[in-house]
Amino acid sequence: MGILDCRNLTKKYGADTALDNVNLELIPGRIVGLLGPNGSGKTTLIKLCMNLLKPTSGEILIDGMKPGPYTKSLVSYLPDRDILENWMNVLQLLDFYTDFYQDFDAGRAVNMLSSLGIDERMPLRKMSKGTREKVQLIMTMSRRAKVYLLDEPIAGVDPAARDYILRTIISNYDPEAMVLISTHLIADVESVLDEAIFIRQGRVDLFDSCDSIRERTGLTLDEYFRRTYHFE
């Protein structure tokens, strides 16, 4: 049993099947890529982990438990959208995270924020979108969680910010935690990944270590992805 288990996990919206009988076992100490085209079910899977969606059938377990308040204390989630309470400034946001999450490392967050030159007193709504995204990432990565769920962390972000995000993910690596990065921008992240899950139309096509995929196919993950899903 891993830190994140999916057993025959299915999610349907009426006639639409977003996830079809997904079975996965993810263990700590790995950085795993959830790779697939848009609309393949990546975000659905992550939202199911966070109990923001309920399964139609099957189950999803985090550290052996169904998603709930306890699992949320173990999981640090970075959604693919702007979610911060925009009336807050950074100092208040730090307080917020410290209040609710015991594993939040405010010191780490402050270091990262100051290395980016972000003014702690500035209200979030006055920041540019790119800066807000970085703040969101910093908050997420400053938690010493068991599971990190990053939903499209580098999409819609300039290359310098992309570098910063990936470096932050690497340097915050914790051998006891599992990091799941969902993205369709495979070339940018593949060197960071230990394992890759290839998902398409709600079904998991492949789950293997990146090195064995590369050795087997002789391709980079990006090239393999393009060839396999080229008609999408």
Partner: peptide, 12 residues
């Protein structure tokens, strides 16, 4: 960790 960040790869 530093080497990993430099290289842009997973510490593993």
């Amino acid at each position: 960790r530093e080497l990993a960040v430099d290289a842009g790869v997973n510490p593993n």
